[in-house]
Design a protein around this nucleic acid. Structure first.
Length: 817
RNA sequence: GCCGGGGUGGCGGAACGGUAGACGCGGCGGCCUCAAAAGCCGCUGUCCGAAAGGGCAUGCGGGUUCGAUUCCCGCCCCCGGCACCA
């Protein structure tokens, strides 16, 4: 049931007409020449969707609409706006769904893409359908493989054995991002750890640069913060503690540790190695091998996840070995414990139980000595510690550093350590190298060939793409090996270097590699002889505004920054930051929770669009809350924007000639000022409110409007209700699209000034009256008038006036006592 | 525990340190109608008061200020992310 009013506004007809017209006229699409010669180019990017079988839900539409409004606004300002869209269609998600329904992904994806395309057209997005990118198309992933080869040839891709997340129920490897709180995102089974040889990108080589550049990016603060936390820079020192034998003689080996508190080194009373640490074997006393190996064995079976699940209860065993604390000269025992992670720092720590909560717990559990080396203001050096003390204070029991303030001590102690030659200052990052291998089927094959003689060889560029073969049995199994390894005729090949019999890499790459560079491909999507054209890339990149979900703050956004830096360093690009501006949109909340399939609160947009039209739906979504914060989706709420658009239509189609009324014109110009400013900052809800207010003024008292009054409103509503705006623009007698020619109304400050203003009159800050005064009235006359108000007189009686505060055009405040 | 973001009417939300609650939803009353829907008009934070007017109100407690939703200090609660990172 569609709402059609008698005023002639039939949303479905108007929308159908303009979607057809845009397509026929090529309003939103560009030819290669147009892209090359565009004036004032503006690249408006949004995160391309994964084309699920369910289609886009209201949350997705919300994100795309908000980004589309921004693009349309920029275009109305006169810019040439390129707004591409594509499909991120590879990955475990699609593959799992394909397995579930028993349809091959190669058959499934095209029909999903078709459905997404229909929805995205229906909602009225300003997409350039001539530059669509589909990551599963060999003409795209040919260049994804090319990107891999750039890193491979530059030594930034390396193959090494590493632990991966293994879901024993799904029998597959999972990406870190598919592990939620230690469990498989899909089935909730606890994830195990396995060691498999993987390809890694050396993103850690770029840690400092990725961090430093953040400062000059115009991104949402939350996103920048999340990213810098993820990179996790910390400063401290790396020290080596010599390993000693039974008699206290140095053995020539030492344990390297990283600490952020080198100043507490005098309090290091034992050492802890991660169970995986290479030195464990060496330092373990013969008599203790059995328990040590047993512990390594249990710890090895637990992954990071299971280790966390132990409620942080500390476990560990002594190795029987000892180090000398180079600061105190004392012998301290070496333990192994799984609270020390091989992945961070050196995989070993000096334990300072007095001043580290974890070490304190461990020392208590195993009765290890706890020494105080920092004293707070109320403590003395001998006060026994009941918990780790991490506050401010001065060093104690620390030799020549006694009484040094902790704040200064880090630097001083580090300098002393460096002089003494057993360590130095060191910066550490928590960022790890990016594992891009997936032992799955549905992804681009990693373009590497293994040859007995030549080792891993990159597939030569002229042999790309390495096409993913159609395999009917693509189910993963417990072997930890990709299903492609079952396809002998595919993986058997010749070494490109020596021609000997060789074997293809059978893993595919992470979907984040697909999405790591798609924005570079878009403008060059129609080039098949290169990943991106030099001139067009120079013209259009980097991206002007990127709008998307904050869930990608540390994944996609970090990876694509890294790849852009690499491509720049290799001479392929002349910029190193891909997105000048990034804004994270908020989330749509339904029934008190984020809209998601698992919560069962997903709202399907199609019937709503059917009933109210895309324009009303778009306007409602943008009105329900601040775009960057999201808001509650309430079905009733759509009535407001629905009525507003209908009234706007009525007003415009029945508007007469004639001049604008000065009072109305003032309101219109105030609205232009407000909306222009707010739209630039994605203030969509308040912009719409301002336009509603303006229309209320135009219509007040049932007066007839003139075209001069309503025309600015037609243009300003266009980003939200593009179809209706086009139709009204045409009916107002204009040729062509409202979006062409920079039709944004110009704000005239002279027309917006009020000649009278309401002045609040306060006594001691409390409102006692309101008066109307001429805008140019003098302070004297305003204060005089204020003083004459009955209610003010009453409150001034029997009081002594101390001061009068006068804020021109706003208020008068009498301060009395 | 750490890092973000928030607590404002019945609800979603507005407010350069300056009349708190714009705009909208819902509710109430009215017009139109045989009736309903749609549309239109008015009212709508709360308490006292016939009214004029006054008191109380932006999570809680302090502070700065002529004036605080806004700035500062100390708490409480909610949402999101990270989490044995040495």
């Amino acid at each position: 049931m569609a709402h059609e009013s008698e005023d002639g506004y039939v949303p479905s007809a108007v929308e159908e007409k303009w979607q057809r017209t845009w397509e026929e006229r090529g309003t939103n699409t560009f030819t290669r020449e147009q892209l090359e010669n565009a004036k004032d180019p503006f690249y408006n990017l949004m995160m391309f969707p994964y084309p699920s079988a369910e289609g886009l839900h209201v949350g997705n539409i919300y994100a795309f609409t908000g980004a589309d409004v921004h693009g349309r606004y920029q275009r109305l300002l006169g810019k040439t706006v390129f707004e591409p869209i594509g499909f991120d269609a590879f990955g475990i998600h699609s593959e799992n769904f394909a397995l579930k329904v028993g349809t091959h992904p190669m058959d499934l994806i095209p029909s999903n893409v078709k459905n997404f395309t229909r929805q995205l057209r229906r909602i009225g997005g300003m997409f350039d359908w001539d530059h669509v990118v589909d990551t599963t198309d060999p003409s795209y992933y040919k260049w994804t493989q090319w990107v891999f080869l750039q890193l491979f040839n530059a030594g930034l891709a390396e193959r090494k054995e590493a632990p991966v997340n293994w879901c024993p129920s799904c029998m597959t490897v999972l990406a870190n991002e598919q592990v939620i709180g230690g469990e498989c995102e899909r089935c909730g089974t606890a994830v195990e750890q396995r060691r498999i040889a993987q390809w890694f990108f050396r993103i850690t080589d770029y840690s400092q640069r990725l961090l430093d550049n953040l400062e000059r990016l115009d991104w949402s603060d939350t996103t920048k913060k999340a990213q810098s936390n993820w990179i996790g820079r910390s400063t401290g020192a790396q020290l080596h503690f010599p390993v000693v034998d039974r008699d206290g003689n140095e053995t020539g080996t030492s344990v390297e540790v990283y600490t952020t508190r080198p100043d507490t080194v005098f309090g290091a009373t034992y050492m802890v190695l991660s169970p995986e640490h290479p030195l464990v074997e060496k330092v373990t006393d013969d008599g203790l091998r059995a328990p040590v190996y047993a512990y390594m064995d249990t710890a090895g079976k637990k992954d990071l996840v299971a280790r966390q699940k132990t409620d942080k209860t500390k476990t560990g065993v002594p190795t029987g070995g000892f180090c000398r604390n180079p600061a105190t000269g004392e012998l301290i025992p070496i333990w192994i414990a799984d609270y020390v992670l091989m992945e961070y720092g050196t995989g070993a720590i000096m334990a300072v139980p007095g001043h580290d909560t974890r070490d304190f717990e461990f020392a208590q559990a195993f009765d290890l000595p706890i020494v105080r080396v920092v004293a707070g203001s109320d403590d003395d050096a001998e006060t026994p510690l009941e918990e780790a003390y991490v506050g401010p204070g001065r060093l104690v029991n620390s030799g020549q550093f006694d009484d040094t303030d902790v704040k200064e001590s880090v630097e001083k102690v580090t300098a002393w350590i460096a002089e003494s030659g057993w360590g130095d200052a060191k910066v550490n990052f928590r960022l790890h190298d990016w594992c891009i291998s997936r032992q799955r089927y549905w992804g681009p094959p990693i373009p590497v060939i293994y040859c007995e003689a030549c080792g891993p060889v990159g597939v030569p560029e002229d042999q790309l793409p390495v096409v993913l073969p159609r395999v009917e049995d693509f189910k993963p199994d417990d072997s930890g090996i990709s299903p492609l390894a079952r396809v002998e005729e595919w993986y058997k090949t010749e070494c490109p270097t020596c021609g000997a019999e060789a074997r293809r890499e059978t893993d595919v790459s992470d979907t984040f590699l697909d999405s790591g560079w798609y924005f570079i491909r878009y403008p060059s999507a129609d080039f098949d002889d290169c990943p991106f054209d030099e001139a067009i890339t120079k013209k259009w990149l980097p991206v002007d505004t990127y709008i998307g979900g904050n869930e990608h703050a540390v994944l996609h956004l970090l990876y694509s920054r890294f790849l852009t830096m690499v491509l720049k360093d290799l001479g392929h690009l002349d910029f190193e930051e891909p997105y000048n501006v990034f804004r994270a949109h908020g989330l749509i909340i339904a029934d008190g929770a984020k809209m998601s399939k698992s919560k069962g609160n997903v709202i399907v947009p199609d019937p709503i669009i059917e009933e109210f039209g895309a324009d009303t739906f778009r306007t409602y979504l943008m009105f329900l809350g601040p775009f960057e914060e999201g808001g509650d989706y309430r079905p009733q709420g759509i009535q407001g924007p629905f009525g507003f658009l209908h009234r706007l239509w009525d007003t415009v189609v029945s508007a007469g000639d004639g001049h604008a009324d000065p009072d109305v014109e003032r309101k219109v110009h105030q609205t232009i000022e407000q909306v222009t400013e707010q739209l630039a900052n994605l203030g969509y809800n308040t912009s719409i409110a301002a336009m509603m207010e303006c229309l209320n003024t135009i219509r007040s008292g049932g007066r007839a409007a003139s075209r001069a009054e309503v025309e600015p409103l037609v243009v300003m509503i266009a980003p939200f209700a593009p179809h209706m705006a086009e139709e009204l623009w045409e009916r107002l007698g204009h040729e062509g699209s409202v979006f062409d020619g920079g039709n944004w109304p110009e704000f005239d400050p002279a027309k917006a000034v009020e000649n009278t203003v309401a002045i609040a009159i306060q006594v001691n800050g409390k409102l006692r009256a309101t008066i109307t005064a001429a805008a140019d009235a003098s302070e004297e006359s305003v204060v005089g008038e204020a003083r004459a108000e009955d209610n003010v007189v009453r409150h001034l009686e029997d009081k002594t006036e101390r001061r009068v505060i006068y804020v021109p055009g706003r208020l008068v405040n009498f301060v009395v006592s």
